[in-house]
Design a protein around this nucleic acid. Structure first.
Length: 830
RNA sequence: GCGGGGGUGGCGGAAUGGUAGACGCGCCAGACUUAGGAUCUGGUGUCAAAAGCGUGGGGGUUCAAAUCCCCCCCUCCGCACCA
């Protein structure tokens, strides 16, 4: 009977589903394991990246169930978002219908892969059962004062027709469509994620040891903490105190100018105080700079542009007058939007001053004793050194100077210690239709009023026509827009913006714990039991997006008493990309491989095996049709062996023969192979998450089974043990074929319910070992010796071996190093 | 520029400081076959070679280095005027 994967896979998927064997329940008497994968966006069909992600997760889930853990493993769909609107326009359908039909198709695909999801926990974010709790959580945030509206220059993507959060702008372009992002002044909803900046930072070190270092560093940089001081410069002509932030208060004596961002509020006051002629020039400058795209403005290599104003500020430490400039390289939304310019010790300020002939005054000399000359310097000196030209602080080392000068400044009332973060508040509103409606109304009398919790959900109308990108159909729906004020009962208008979809994905794992809860987003007892996630698996691209937002949510939900955990994901695995012909598989490059086609041709087990064997999870994985065939060939080999030897194998296996009973060396080796395989595979799967080597070990065991030609009863007993071990250990990777063969061997209980095998220590002991004989560190011979020989005996034995005696004849032995059970190295001269 | 990974056969990749190249792909030879792009057996770093040489390059530590230290090169990724 050939290996008929199509029928076999269908059969077992049916059995698993009918028996509900993958459903899990909250049970504090059992040890839990929450295995989570980043849920997909229902774009239409699964791609190989999904298959890779979920195959990794399924191996872990199936493995841990066998290890006796109560495993929560399920999936959902992150189903709000732009593509549904675009598709609606293109295919003249409705986002709701398009999305749900995609979900249906992708669900089918997932089931075909044999993933052991608990489908009764599934969460679909675009359904009101789910998004009403987005609205509810948003209202809790509002109550706690961390939701606010603000008019501010925000990131605007013209092609998506909406604003974007800071995290969603990559190198000045939109993360989704890669078009240039501009700034626009709009009143928008924000969440004060910055309140949590310090905790988000601290907990990276404290609680995220199970995360890849790379992601921890990326988040650390994104949060971007810097310590320094805030100080102010009096501007007599404008009767204004200009505040600036600096991390280098020790360079305060080196200030030769002040620079403002063109958006700074002081610019307005300046314009009023300037002559009309000068004001026109300044206006033109500001216009020029602010009309630059984000890409141009944030390019560090681009030319620095400045405009010298007729105003000056007073350096608080020495009373010196310094000119005030407006410059394009000053960011309006970091610090105070103004800087103290110290060209001698800051690269950017240096470039600026050389261009505009502003004096350079060094206030730190290198430790080697060189005296810097401001006029002659060719680049800024940014290293630590010794303070000079700094009055009473001369001679201090930089680290000391920073501390002492700020101490002094604080005592004098000149400055105040301050910590700044790069992290910005999370801009949550989107000018889109297909998202969670923001639960607020605008009342002429009462202003901005939250929708009362009992009125949730604010339902998103589903029967709409999306006509053009950038225009939400909600704006044309009076029945949605027109409402009454919950406060005064008067006429009011609904907020037509929807939430960033990252809001949905910040807590879906909590929902998995309490599926279908109608009274709350989740039951505390469920979440207390299941959370935090023990293993999260997904792409690196979310390092500073989803993974920061979800961490923030965890902290907020705990602060309002809904949960007990402060970090949602204990361990994180970021799988590499699936590559073909040297590039990431993508529709636009036309180098995709459709999982459905491959599953049809080879079966789900083969696809899973290939994708897990071809590379370790963290590496990128090059698709190879040949290697898919290789994986298929291996499964055929396993199938053929069990099928052809089924009768003999079934005849035996009544008892497991212990190592002590086995005499023949070949059989002892075979027994050892079985148990070392168990030990290594267990370690590779759980400790290393190194599935490629785990599979390699199973291939070795298969090879060993094939090569054992002994047909004694004893040998058959052992072969039975080997085959059953092989099937059990292979089953998390290739669950269908292994169930089928397991059944063929006469088992009635499903293999997925069978406990994971345990390596027998006694079967692992070596009878003899290969000792490497080295001369001067070079391998010269190999010798079989009994295991466990003492250092002395081993040394004697190898030194007296005729082969080695001959090799070292006539040479003077200087030293001998013997490592028990490993090697003997003879150091000789001559 | 700053930060973080990587660099091992023809390829994907293995190697607690201790036999470099497990396992697989590919390739070569043979067997079985009407046939093989099925299957099985053997071989496969380099070199004519038992020797020698081999883990990006150069130094070093060590009895012993892919692995530890220093310098350099290449490559991928992230951040990028954050004061």
């Amino acid at each position: 009977m050939p290996y008929n994967f199509a029928d076999i896979e269908k059969k077992w998927q049916g059995r698993w589903s009918d028996s509900h064997c993958f459903e899990s329940h909250t049970d504090p008497s059992k040890e839990k394991f929450f295995c989570l994968e980043m849920f997909p966006y229902p774009s239409g069909a699964l791609h190989m990246g999904h298959i890779r992600n979920y195959s990794i997760g399924d191996v872990l889930a199936r493995f841990l169930r066998k290890k006796g853990k109560n495993v929560l493993y399920t999936i959902g769909f992150d189903s709000f978002g732009m593509p549904a609107e675009n598709a609606a326009i293109k295919f003249k359908t409705k986002p709701h219908d398009w999305t749900l039909s995609n979900i249906a198709y992708m669900t089918e695909q997932l089931k075909r892969m044999g993933y052991s999801y608990d489908w009764h926990r599934e969460a679909i974010t675009c359904l009101p059962e789910y998004y009403r709790w987005n609205q509810w959580i948003f209202l809790q945030m509002y109550k706690k004062g961390i939701v606010y509206q603000k008019e501010a220059p925000v990131n605007w993507c013209e092609s998506c027709g909406t604003v974007l959060a800071n995290e969603q702008v990559e190198n000045g372009v939109c993360w989704r469509c890669h078009n240039a992002v501009t700034k626009k002044n709009l009143k928008q909803w924000f969440i004060k994620i910055t309140d949590y900046a310090q905790e988000l930072l601290d907990d990276i070190e404290k609680d995220l040891q199970g995360w890849p270092n790379r992601v921890r560093i990326m988040q650390t940089n994104w949060i971007g903490r810097s310590e320094g001081a805030r100080l102010s410069f009096k501007i007599p002509d404008l009767n204004y105190e200009l505040e600036a932030f600096t991390t280098r208060f020790d360079t305060i004596y080196g200030v030769t100018f002040i620079a403002l961002a063109p958006e700074h509020e002081l610019v307005k006051k300046m314009l009023e105080a300037m002559t009309p002629d000068e004001a026109e020039k300044l206006k033109a400058f500001v216009k020029k700079v602010t009309s630059q795209s984000s890409i141009e403005r944030s390019d560090a290599k681009a030319d620095k542009l400045g405009f010298e104003t007729p105003f000056y500020g007073i350096n608080p430490v020495n009373g010196k007058r310094v000119p005030i400039w407006i410059a394009n390289y000053i960011l309006s939304d970091y610090g105070t939007g103004a800087i103290m310019g110290v060209p001698a010790h800051d690269t950017r300020d240096f470039d600026f001053c050389r261009k505009y002939n502003i004096p350079v005054i060094p206030v730190i000399n290198p430790v080697d004793g060189t005296q810097l000359d401001g006029a002659a310097m060719t680049e800024a000196f940014t290293e630590d050194g010794i303070a000079c030209n700094s009055g009473e602080f001369n001679g201090l080392k930089t680290s000391e100077a920073i501390k002492k000068m700020i101490d002094w400044g604080e005592a004098q009332g000149i400055c105040k210690r301050e910590v700044n973060f790069k992290l910005r508040d999370w801009l949550i509103s989107r000018q889109r239709y297909w998202g969670t409606p923001i639960p607020f109304v605008y009342c002429e009398k009462c202003g901005v009023v939250p929708v009362p919790e009992e009125d949730l959900p604010v339902r998103l109308p589903e029967d709409v026509e999306v006509k053009e990108v950038g225009h939400s159909p909600l704006l044309d729906l009076p029945e949605f827009l027109n409402t009454t004020c919950p406060h005064c009962g008067g006429p009011a208008r609904r907020e037509a913006d929807t939430m960033d979809t990252f809001f949905c994905s910040s807590w879906y794992f909590d929902r998995y714990c309490s599926p279908g809860d109608e009274k709350a987003p989740f039951e505390k007892s469920d979440v207390d039991y299941w959370m935090p996630v023990d293993q999260y698996i997904g792409g690196i691209e979310h390092a500073c997006l989803h993974l920061i937002y979800a961490r923030f949510f965890a902290k907020f939900l705990t602060d309002i008493g809904l949960t007990e955990y402060r970090e949602p994901f204990t361990r994180l695995l970021t799988q590499g990309m699936v590559i073909k012909d040297g590039a990431k598989m993508s529709k636009s490059l036309g180098n995709t491989v459709d999982p459905t086609e491959i599953v049809k041709k080879y079966g789900a087990d083969t696809v899973r095996l290939f994708i897990l064997f071809a590379a370790p999870p963290n590496n990128d994985l090059e698709w190879s049709d040949r290697n898919v065939e290789g994986a298929h060939r291996f499964l055929n080999r396993v199938w053929r062996y069990v099928e052809e030897n089924c009768a003999s194998l079934k005849q035996y296996g009544a008892k497991i023969i212990s190592m002590d009973e086995i005499k023949a060396p070949a059989l002892r080796d075979f027994k050892r192979k079985i148990h070392s395989t168990i030990e290594n595979v267990t370690h590779d799967i759980y400790d290393e998450k190194q599935f490629n080597t785990a599979i390699a070990r199973l291939m070795e065991l298969t090879n060993a089974v094939y090569s054992l030609n002994d047909t004694s009863a004893e040998a058959w007993e052992l072969k039975r043990e080997a085959v059953e071990t092989l099937l059990n250990c292979l089953s998390p990777f290739c669950p269908h074929i292994t169930e089928e063969l397991w059944e063929m061997l006469g088992h009635e209980k499903m293999l997925c319910l069978e406990p994971w095998p345990v390596a027998d220590k006694n079967s692992l002991t070596q009878d003899s070992v290969t000792i490497v004989g080295q001369i001067n560190g070079k391998v010269r011979g190999k010798f079989e010796r009994p295991a466990g020989m003492s250092r002395e005996d081993l040394q004697k034995s190898i030194l007296s071996d005729p082969y080695m005696v001959e090799k070292i004849a006539g040479k003077e032995i200087l030293k001998v190093i013997a490592v028990p059970d490993k090697l003997v190295n003879i150091v000789v001269k001559g």
